[in-house]
């Protein structure tokens, strides 16, 4: 279990993390989402032991990560800009990983050759960005990680390869109980794979839930009121509303049954509950934090 408590990190007076709290259950796939500059990569660098916290704590299975060799040996990371040695071939990098990670499995590495059809003797520098990313997955998965930390992991991969790597990761999660923390802006993709989600903004986690709970806790309704209701009643608690003719679209922070009850006194002629996508939850949650989409005409 990855546990971050009250994490604070300041860079030259700028507070990048301001009391961040994250809890990633063991064996879960946790999606960390947030706008640019929210502090997601900073959180990831703390989990990987790259940054030392100014205050707060970062633990994996209750043990602090900083300068902890055994914890780091159980984690693999694929950062957005994966590092490899200049002029190193895939095989040479494999030997390096093998020497560094005690749990590195050559057998698995050989098996994964099928999934990643790239010539091993090729110099990584000469590969395309997408292929380099494949190499990163190939090597990271070969370390048999108990914890996989991913920052924009499928960026640059083609759709087939995206499915391929997600499938490999999911099988690791289901077979070996690997914990995955993934930061991405591709919310549609995260929605398919994540079971937990944390939304970050300005160095803080705004909300952190099980994805199902999150989706249950917010509802989108299309409502048509009677002719006597021309405006949306002020006492209906909505996160966001819009109107097209007589059809109101309401976003409410509650489940659909409760929303129906709230609307009942106004005797709506039609109420239709539509589940929200993760992207919509993200947009409406941050809208409340003044990060809404602005209608700007240039």
């Amino acid at each position: 279990m990855i546990e971050i408590k009250d994490l604070v990190k300041t860079f030259d007076g700028f507070k990048a993390l301001d009391g961040t709290n994250i809890s990633v259950p063991k064996g879960s796939v946790y999606g960390l989402v947030g706008p640019n500059g929210a502090g997601k990569s900073t959180v990831i660098r703390h989990i990987l032991g790259i940054y030392k916290e100014d205050s707060g704590s970062v633990t994996i299975d209750g043990t602090p990560v900083w300068e902890n060799r055994s914890i780091k040996a159980r984690c693999a990371a694929i950062p957005d800009d994966w590092y490899y040695f200049a002029n190193a071939t895939i095989r040479e990098m494999m030997h390096f990983y093998k020497g560094i990670y005690p749990s590195f499995s050559v057998e698995r590495y050989e098996k994964l050759k099928e999934a990643f059809p790239i010539e091993e003797k090729k110099v990584i520098r000469h590969l395309s960005k997408g292929m380099q990313k494949q190499v990163a997955f190939w090597l990271a998965l070969s370390t048999m990680p108990e914890c996989l930390i991913l920052d924009e992991p499928v960026d640059g991969l083609d759709p087939v390869m995206r499915r391929q790597v997600w499938s490999l990761m999911m099988s690791d999660v289901s077979e070996r109980g690997t914990t995955v923390l993934v930061s991405s802006h591709n919310l549609r993709e995260l929605e398919d794979v994540c079971d937990h989600v944390g939304i970050m903004d300005k160095g803080k986690v705004l909300l952190e839930r099980n994805l199902t709970e999150l989706q249950d806790n917010m509802v989108k309704l299309q409502v048509v009121f009677g002719t006597d209701v021309t405006e949306l009643p002020a006492d209906i608690p909505v996160l966001h509303s819009s109107r097209l003719g007589r059809v109101f679209t309401l976003i409410m922070r509650m489940n659909s049954d409760r929303a129906m009850e709230v609307l009942k006194p106004y005797s709506p002629m039609l109420v239709d509950a539509i589940p929200l996508t993760l992207e919509e939850i993200f947009i409406y949650e941050l809208g409340g934090e003044h990060y809404e989409v602005k209608d700007i005409v240039i």
Partner: peptide, 16 residues
């Protein structure tokens, strides 16, 4: 930042 991140995330302590 890229290389320092890579080296400081591997399971080798700074002393090592």
């Amino acid at each position: 930042a890229k290389s320092v991140g890579a080296f400081h995330s591997i399971p080798v302590t700074r002393a090592g």
